[in-house]
Write a protein that binds this DNA or RNA. Structure first.
Lengths: 221, 221
DNA sequence: TCAAAATATGACCAATAGTCAGTAAATGAA
DNA sequence: TTCATTTACTGACTATTGGTCATATTTTGA
């Protein structure tokens, strides 16, 4: 048992090494520009070895996506554990997401990559894709939970269906952060150059905007 | 002059044919799966001919993106011409966008494709990319204009900066429609299966939500 | 009528994802 | 320790596909 355990640990370490290296290469060359040969060389492994751990290039990207989802969910779960009004939980979830994107831009890119794959087979029947989906479901559950808390404590209107509202908040948050994020990557997107607001300002105002839309009347300022 | 004009028309027709065919092939095989050979064959042209009109595969995708932007902007400009309260213009712009995405899903995909390219060179110095950017800027201008109308006619709070609010609305709308759109592509995204709302319902509620956030107090129900 | 210019073509090239036959290392029984 | 067997690794090779270019075809206009 000990022996198997060590082998298992080594196997996992190899896998992690590959993912680490892939993140590094992608950071330097982008998702398009990163090649399997480059990853193999940087990890000091033969290319074939990569394929012992991942069945395709897309799989590695999904693994990165999985890492990111896991990390984000950990951060979100902490917010849920705090003693806050529902409306403030929602706000804090928004800020946590913004912070996450700024701290780990590569995971944000990986999420987009993943979403673009949906619908184009490739990830059909993939273990990793299923895991990513599960994490996404979990993240969604946190948002819905916070909304329910808010409806319970009276800080959020209960005229919306929490699941539908959750989906809206999730989508809208991603959209706003996405657009703010594009702005940070200089070059192009001159539309954004006209607007001189920071990512923070944008997200805070967004949270404020939807916040005042969903806040129950007896909590309005 | 007549001769040159005819040649010019033929040249444009060829170009349009290629874009039409590319749209068709992409619809069948996805952006990843579509190959230049497939487009050439379907258009009954030699592959080299494609490169007389477009300098790369990405260029064709950008051309599709440009078409879509143009179309969307036409639809948006009509809304601006209507005699509506600013807040209702914003709502209508949202519905127009939703309708656009449902009617021309390929353009929505093309937009996403375009955005993913931003930052990864490839479209540096591209004529088409510049045109797409210009259209995006124009779309943004419509939203800002509608907000200004609303602030003027009193239907929208003037405590926000219209440009910042415009960016938020634009990003959030895209995010919500995006997530609702993923739902339509069956398979995967089980998170969304839990939620049985239609794209319409989602977008309407979203518009309602941000609407009540930005509506000026003397217009509140 | 025909030479020159413009246009079209597909065989070819380069890059890269993915494979596999062969090699090396680890294991564990004798 | 030895060696057969299993496991892990490798990089040369294949297949696919975006992009090029020498050649062929068509159009032009003198």
């Amino acid at each position: 048992m000990k022996k198997l355990s060590r082998k298992e640990r080594e196997r996992i370490a190899r896998r992690e090494l590959i993912i680490d290296t892939a993140e590094e290469v992608i950071s330097n060359y982008g998702f398009e520009g990163a090649t399997m040969d480059a990853v193999a060389e940087k990890a000091e492994l033969g290319k074939g070895t990569l394929y012992l751990h991942f069945k395709s290039k897309a799989s590695i990207y999904l693994a990165i996506c999985e890492r990111g989802s896991k990390k984000l969910n950990q951060l979100m779960s902490k917010v849920l554990a705090e003693d806050l009004k529902g409306i403030d939980m929602i706000k804090k979830l928004g800020m946590v997401y913004l912070d996450f994107v700024k701290t780990y831009p590569i995971y944000f890119s990986a999420f987009n990559y993943y979403e673009n794959l949906i619908g184009e087979e490739k990830l059909a029947g993939s273990e990793l894709a299923a895991q990513c989906e599960e994490y996404a479901r979990e993240a969604m559950a946190y948002i819905v939970r916070a909304l329910q808390v808010g409806m319970q404590d009276g800080s959020i209107k209960d005229s919306y269906d929490p699941r539908e509202l959750g989906l809206i908040i999730w989508g809208a948050s991603k959209g706003v952060v996405h657009i703010a994020f594009l702005k940070e990557k200089k070059e192009h997107m001159k539309i954004l150059d006209d607007v001189s607001f920071s990512l923070e300002s944008l997200v805070k105002n967004f949270i404020e905007l939807i916040g005042s839309g969903m806040r129950s009347d007896d909590h309005k300022s």
